[in-house]
Design a binder for these strands. Structure first.
Lengths: 162, 162
DNA sequence: TATTGTTATACTCTATAACTATA
DNA sequence: TATAGTTATAGAGTATAACAATA
């Protein structure tokens, strides 16, 4: 069962094989897939003038009204300062409101406007279509396995960070 | 078998549930896992003064000597201009060389120095340890499945980009 | 004293146009 | 003309320190 490995000389590496060292790493494949997902998601959100981050923020605010910015930043796994510009943009576009919390005048209670909720609904449909398209090749059972594996990796990373 | 779902009132969302909308998306879990992987990988490479990108570039150059910059950029899936600073850094540190190609004086043939190959070996060991640590919770068979799924997603993204 | 949101800042990664020197 | 590497530049995401207002 001898396989003719390749015709090319060893010292002239083929372009398509140059990433062979990297392809041995699981993280390489996960990164490539994640890049593809992000690109496709942003393309799907572009007609709505949203990006992954602005969509995520709008989605969380729309479905969990009353959150404070610190809580939202936590839910999005981003730092508080980085959330400010995102909310500035969503607020400027009339998609969310920063309501003062009466009991704690330092904080804002975030909520989506009617327009924000409508845009969220449209965006969610676009995102679901995007996921359906990108994950067609993966059976529902495998998608469940995949989600579990991703959660395990994330938890392992959490553990390593302490 | 009734489960007491939660004690909290509905209109005061719990912090831990704020990302419920996002957790329905497979892409959300993949992104979180990828972030964890990148953070852990960079932490593993930090003692060697490498990052994911500089490691990847060094790895490809070390194992495929003679590549041109355009080919390397292609292997790394980055744009040619963005590769320049990375190679500048690796060259300045004496890890790689840019050798003129005699037959095409526009191009450089990239190769790792002895020191570059040594650092690559050390880095590869660190990266393997990092992957072993992060992926302990995933059986070898599942890791194979995972890789296949990532490749499928990436190809679906490629198809969507045309 | 501690916390909320904010400003300022910096670093990394990414993407595009335009230049130079060669081909 | 076209290509290889480069420069300049801009956008997006991420991270930290420090501030004013409030608790």
């Amino acid at each position: 069962m001898q396989q003719p490995v390749t015709d090319a000389p060893e010292d002239e590496p083929q372009t398509g094989d140059a990433d062979a060292v990297l392809r041995e790493l699981l993280g390489y494949h996960i990164k490539r897939a994640q890049s593809a997902i992000q690109a496709d998601l942003n393309a799907a959100l572009k007609p709505l003038d949203l990006r992954m981050l602005t969509f995520s923020a709008l989605a969380v605010v729309a479905s969990s009204p009353g959150l404070r910015q610190a809580q939202l930043a936590d839910a999005l796994s981003i730092e508080r300062p980085n959330l400010v510009v995102i909310l500035d943009e969503l607020e400027r576009r009339g998609l969310i409101l920063r309501d003062r919390v009466p009991t704690d005048r330092r904080a804002y209670a975030l909520k989506a406007t009617l327009e924000g909720r409508r845009l969220f609904e449209a965006a969610q449909a676009a995102v679901r279509a995007h996921e359906a398209a990108l994950f067609t090749g993966i059976s529902p059972e495998d998608q469940v396995r995949l989600r579990e594996m991703m959660q395990r990796i994330w938890r392992a990373g959490e553990g390593a960070r302490e």
